[in-house]
Each structure stands twice: as C-alpha cells, then as structure tokens.
Design a protein around this nucleic acid. Structure first.
Lengths: 118, 118
DNA sequence: CCTTCGCGGTTACCATTGGTTACCTGGTGA
DNA sequence: TCACCAGGTAACCAATGGTAACCGCGAAGG
C-alpha cells in the first residue's frame, strides 16, 4: 500500500493521461489546434464539438486553463465575450497528440477486428 | 445521424484514449515494450508494475489481449505458466505512446508550475 | 411592452463506472 | 504447513460524466 505509492502517483505519463484521457479534453485541444493561431469563443467551441454540454465544455476548459495549455481572454463587451486559444505549451502537446490520433485512425480497424474475432 | 456519427461515438481517437487512458494500461504496454521481443510472465509483470493488484493486472491484460495488442501464451507446465508479449500492433502503438511519454516527462513540470500559480 | 433568444457560465442532483480490498480456487515444491 | 502460480468473485467506494435548472445581461421580434 505505501510501497508503490512513492513513485506511482507522481509518474508524469500517468498524470498526463489522466488529463487528456478525460472525455472531451483531446477533442477540445484538437479543435483549438485547428483554429490556431486564431481564438475561439465559448459558444463557437460548443458548436464545433458535437454532443458536448455547457457544463462539460466549461469544466474541460477550466482544467486546460489551469494546466497552462489554454489561454482565456475576457473581452469586456456588452454581453461579455470569452476567447480561448492554445498556449505554446498546448501547441507543443498537439504534436504527440496528433501522432496518437493518426495511429488511432489507421489502426482502430485492426483492434475492432481483433475484438470481433474473440 | 449519418454524418455526425463520424466523429461522435465512433471517433477512433476517443476510443483509443478510453483504452490507454485506463489506469494501468500504458504502464503495462511500457513494461512489455521494454522487455520486447521477450515474453513476460504474469507474476513477473506484477513485480515490474509497482502497486498493481492481481485483479487489475488480470483485467488490464485481458482487455489488451482482446484488442489484439498483446499475445497470451499458456505453457501447460506443472503450475501453468502464462507468457505475455506485445503483438506487432502493440509495438506500433508504442511509438506514439513513447512520444507522449517523452512529452510528459519534459513538460509536466510546466503544467505543475501553471497549476501552482493559480 | 412583453417575451424570447444567446452569451458564458454555475449549481444541484443522479447514474454509471473504474478501481480497490479481501477472499476463493487447485495443484505443486520446500 | 506454508507459499507460489494465475487468476476469479464479491462487495464497496470515490470519481467521472450527464441532465436540468438557474443566473444577469443585452438585443431582437411581435
């Protein structure tokens, strides 16, 4: 119980996967990366991420901002406008993430065949 | 219906992240990749993955085998011996996964700084 | 004048699930 | 008698994710 705890929970890969493995995070990063270097507004993100609810988009963006992967800019206009964009850190994460996406798109069919053949 | 389905529930990236995002999967893949092309036995894996329980190692390996990422070989010896190794598909996944690990190891400190600065 | 829409969230509540501990098998070698 | 091997089973618990309602504010429509 106390033995593995010393280095397991601090493993950087595990902690990264806890973040990008959450349901909507990688989707949000992808959409923001496609728009980069432009900013995207909250309601706009909602439209570009089909199926996401207001709450989930909100908490997803909050955690991304807290991690320094996304920058949030509030425009003090009439109805307040909030703009999001990837930081440099977020853009650097896009590189390995895009590689993972590419692997997924080319190989998920094989995984499906393996699962079906069981 | 036919159009939105392309990225909503059947999105390959999402489904891949559901798999490798589960707590012990990436650890198991890493350990098996380090040992490749040698096989690793169940109890041996348990020793190399600190903190994992028998049950979680069992279910983790089962899902990896079901996905065709890991091959399972039963040696019908006295107390039965079970050997695991990555398949070619599993080895190909190791490439983007290693890139993600490297990103994590070099950049998690920045994420920590961003989180602490709030 | 009243109502509805859109903006950018927050809060409360609920169901599912993933992970954990603990205990079971059945045969073997020390 | 005990521990080891490779798991399986049961029960519990915390975290994740989802729904729905609410918020002030302004603009647009009838």
């Amino acid at each position: 119980m106390t033995r593995g705890d010393l280095f397991s929970p601090a493993c950087p890969t595990r902690r990264l996967l806890d973040r990008i493995g959450s349901k909507w995070t990688s989707m949000a990063v992808k959409v923001l990366a496609e728009a980069a270097p432009d900013e995207v507004r909250f309601a706009d993100l909602r439209r570009r991420i089909p199926g996401i609810s207001q709450k989930m988009l909100s908490v997803t963006l909050q955690s991304l901002v807290a991690d320094g992967l996304v920058a949030r800019r509030v425009e003090p206009a009439v109805p307040v406008r909030v703009h999001y964009r990837l930081t440099e850190l977020g853009l650097s994460l896009e590189v390995p993430l895009a590689a993972l996406r590419e692997w997924a798109e080319t190989h998920m069919a094989e995984i499906d065949r393996a699962s079906a053949a069981r």
